[in-house]
Design a protein around this nucleic acid. Structure first.
Length: 800
DNA sequence: GATACGTTGAGG
DNA sequence: CTCAACGTATCT
């Protein structure tokens, strides 16, 4: 029997990011297993922390005193061996702490809260006055400063002790079910025992009789409006009913879903399904890139491959971007697989997430659909993994651990020997390039279902309009909107909010000032009134006239949805407008509600930001307008063209999904830009070729991997010095094939009184770099003074 | 992250 | 000399 447990403690710092040896007490010997959370003493004081058992051993590795485990939190492991291994890989590959990785795999509700308690040890008068009958005081609850000071004095005097304890949170939800014992036979007998005029009791008896007759077992909460708990308890004492406590799952989707039948596949679709299913049957961890135009029936392909995995007695995991996880989407999956489905996304409450998580862990479901974090769904025996809209940037987590869901899924695909399907109409360049190299198997769905044509895309040159421009609307777009209003058809208007007001553009010629060294747009800094390059640190004054055409119309560019809505209301007073942006969708369920309203034709125009580009399918939408296609193009981001192309293609696919032909109007200051040109012709492959050429020229991904190192300190000089010394060490440790940019000050150079500097590395050999960065990080931490924070972000989404 | 324990420096 | 204030090594 193992005597030692290797425990990762919940203290997320660099120095404690390693397993600690703890003695397993004899009475817990048979209980403690890897994957269980435990409570241990850590450090010198009486401090309890939670930890995760990651391994067992016969003998301690640590030479010093080994403390015993205080208690176990779980009765069964909450992490499978797979998840423990995954957490270890995640920590090293993202430079995150092991405990942080572990915590992202568990539902938020399982994160234990610590409470700091004051416990009396003497019985003095002062202690009596402070505590009264209470055995302990929770220090966090004490708001009175005077009381707090008294308590501190008592601790000094040794009359009070402070202790850290792990506070267990409420976990499973329980309901109390009412079993009626009232029958036709005994109803009158019970009635006779009740005092005359006791209307409530008589009503309760009648209700109970009704429950018996209809075989209903209501819960106490369901009848709370009519009968209080006190009344029910009394009735229980009289033998009218039985109360039983029952654990329930919170059901976030209580409605019944209309069952959907598998659709007949087109020849293209069957070919794709056959290839993936072959990999499922062969237990082959093959990665497929499914490139399918909007409307080509990718979802049906997903559903049928998942069905095949289930048929083989396996499970299926499907990731969808948060904003695409609409009720429409969920209905479709639940309709096909019914109660075998668990749904995980950020819209659920912590309790709901916990319950869905447990249903998965207990093997009660075979299919999981969810957003990014669902990549860690505790599914066993996975047969197929699907990632829809694989190019979506929301798959990358922007705080620690900075993982990309695609990498996590690839890991799990290898672990389970199950195929991974990456699907998109506009794959990320990295993915498409891997398919080119044969790392991924490329699958194509080039045609729309029912041979529907792609919508016609018109581009309006905003530079040529001048005085006829009304707000942000060209005459052509206004005219098209008016036509839809007359025909009682609907329109979708996209306002590209990316890069709002962060750069300077000429209103006359569309010129955007670029960095002379990096060929990347300069970012506007309002604090210093200068333009800066976030790659190399180049800086210059804001021009007053356009360097290209001499116009004075060069200014900050940007527009908000609210402003557009106001102009639109004056231009088209009879139009009913629905605005969808971060402001109007903040509340839970607001997103779904707005879409439903629009689906029921309660508005003529849906105006919104990127979020309207996905997951909506309305037959009456025949016009899609893009108010400003260019905003993202001005961003200091080498992926700007890619994102613009993806967004325009995506939103174009929203027009004319039914029998009515669709029209797309794109307003642009750069109509000849290749991203806009290729989007106009729905030409992903053309865009891919062109963009790859430019990436090659600029030494950008996918030709190079990238990593962003950020170093910060309270003192600006220290931060700068550390950044430059880090740069120096990097230069000597890395080969000539690594390109280093910076150090430059962070875009928000000061944040929470800390100064940030960053270095961007472009490199070819990922394994070597990970090793170098990991050792360097440890060196910086130990050899130099404290006060530094250093973090690495692999394949960052933003370089500013 | 929290703690005990070291080193400093002002006040007596 | 005392004590608090600050810095820092350590946690199994």
């Amino acid at each position: 029997m193992a005597a030692i447990a290797k425990v990762i403690v919940d203290v997320p710092t660099m120095q404690t990011d390693q397993p600690y040896d703890y003695l397993i007490p004899a009475d817990l010997a048979a209980v403690v297993k890897p994957g269980m959370r435990v409570v241990v003493n850590f450090g010198k004081g009486k401090r309890e922390v939670t930890g995760m058992v990651v391994d067992l051993a016969e003998e301690p590795e640590f030479a010093g005193e080994v403390k015993p485990i205080v208690s176990v939190i779980d009765l069964a492991p909450v992490l499978t061996p797979e998840m423990l291994a995954l957490s270890s890989w995640l920590a090293t590959s993202t430079f995150a702490f092991r405990i942080t990785s572990i915590q992202t795999m568990l539902p938020a509700m399982m994160k234990a809260n610590m409470e700091k308690l004051a416990i009396p040890v003497a019985h003095s008068e002062a202690v009596q006055a402070m505590f009264g009958q209470q055995p302990a005081l929770n220090i966090a609850d004490i708001t009175d400063i005077v009381q707090l000071k008294q308590l501190m004095a008592l601790e000094q005097a040794g009359e009070v002790e402070t202790v850290y304890r792990v506070a267990k949170k409420g976990h499973a939800k329980h309901v109390i079910v009412i079993d009626s014992l009232v029958t036709e036979a005994n109803h009158d007998e019970f009635l006779a025992s009740v005092r005359k005029g006791a209307t409530k009791q008589i009503a309760l008896l009648d209700a109970l009789l009704a429950f018996s007759n209809s075989q209903k077992r209501p819960t106490t909460t369901e009848v709370a409006a009519e009968f209080s708990r006190a009344q029910l308890n009394q009735a229980k004492a009289k033998g009218w009913l039985k109360l039983t406590e029952q654990e329930v799952y919170r059901n976030p989707y209580p409605e019944q879903f209309p069952a959907t039948q598998p659709k007949t596949l087109t020849a293209d679709q069957s070919q794709v399904v056959d290839q993936v299913v072959a990999a499922v049957s062969a237990n082959r961890a093959e990665t497929f890139l499914l490139e399918g135009v909007t409307g080509s029936g990718k979802t049906e392909v997903y559903l049928q491959t998942m069905a095949a995995a289930l048929q083989a007695g396996k499970t299926a995991l499907m990731l969808v971007p948060e904003i695409a996880l609409t009720p429409q989407m969920v209905n479709r999956v639940k309709g096909r697989f019914g109660s075998q489905v668990a749904v995980l996304h950020s819209g659920l409450s912590d309790g709901e997430k916990y319950d869905e998580w447990r249903r998965i862990a207990r093997h009660e479901v075979q299919v999981v659909v969810g957003a990014r974090s669902a990549a860690f769904a505790p599914l066993d025996n996975i047969g197929v993994i699907i990632m829809d809209e694989e190019h979506e940037t929301s798959y990358k987590q922007e705080d620690n651990p900075r993982y990309h869901a695609r990498d996590v899924l690839a890991w799990r695909s290898r672990f389970h020997h199950a195929p991974l399907v990456l699907g998109s109409a506009t794959p990320a360049l990295e993915s498409r390039a891997r398919a080119q190299k044969g790392v991924y198997t490329l699958l194509n769905l080039p045609n729309r279902i029912n041979q529907r044509p792609m919508p016609k895309v018109a581009i309006v040159d905003m530079r040529a309009i001048g005085a006829e421009l009304q707000g942000d609307f060209s005459p052509a777009l206004l005219q098209a909107l008016q036509t839809r209003l007359d025909r009682h058809e609907q329109s979708v208007l996209l306002l590209n909010r990316r890069g709002f007001s962060s750069f300077v553009m000429c209103r006359d010629c569309g010129f955007v000032k670029k960095c002379p060294n990096c060929d990347i747009s300069l970012t506007l800094h309002m604090d210093t009134h200068r333009l800066k390059c976030h790659y190399c640190g180049h800086e210059e004054a804001i021009p007053t006239t356009c360097p290209n055409c001499g116009s004075r119309q060069i200014r900050y560019y940007g527009t908000g949805t609210q402003k557009v809505e106001t102009t639109l209301k004056t231009l088209l007073p009879e139009a009913r407008i629905l605005r969808m942006d971060v402001d109007t969708t903040k509340k839970k369920g607001a997103h779904a509600k707005l879409l439903k309203q629009f689906g029921q034709h309660e508005a003529d125009i849906l105006l919104g930001t990127q979020m309207i580009a996905k997951g909506l399918d309305f037959p009456d939408v025949t016009l899609v307008g893009v108010i400003n296609a260019d905003t993202a193009l001005g961003l200091p981001d080498f992926r700007a063209s890619e994102h613009t192309f993806q967004l325009l293609t995506q939103v174009s696919g929203r027009a004319g999904r039914a029998d009515k032909p669709g029209e797309v109007i794109i307003q642009s200051f750069n109509p000849e830009h290749y991203a806009i040109q290729f989007a106009q012709h729905h030409d992903y492959e053309g865009f891919y070729q062109q963009e790859m050429f430019l990436r090659h020229q600029g030494d950008y991904p996918p030709y190079y991997y990238t990593v962003k190192a950020t170093i910060s300190h309270e003192d600006e000089n220290e931060a700068a010095k550390a950044a430059f010394s880090l740069a120096k060490s990097l230069k000597s440790a890395l080969g000539d094939d690594t390109i280093m940019l910076g150090p430059t000050p962070g875009s928000i150079a000061r944040l929470k009184n800390r100064y940030y500097y960053q270095i961007v590395l472009k490199y070819k050999q990922p394994d070597h770099l990970v090793t170098v960065l990991n050792t360097l990080r440890d060196q910086v931490q130990t050899s130099s003074r404290q006060g530094f924070q250093i973090s690495f972000d692999r394949e960052p989404q933003s370089f500013i």
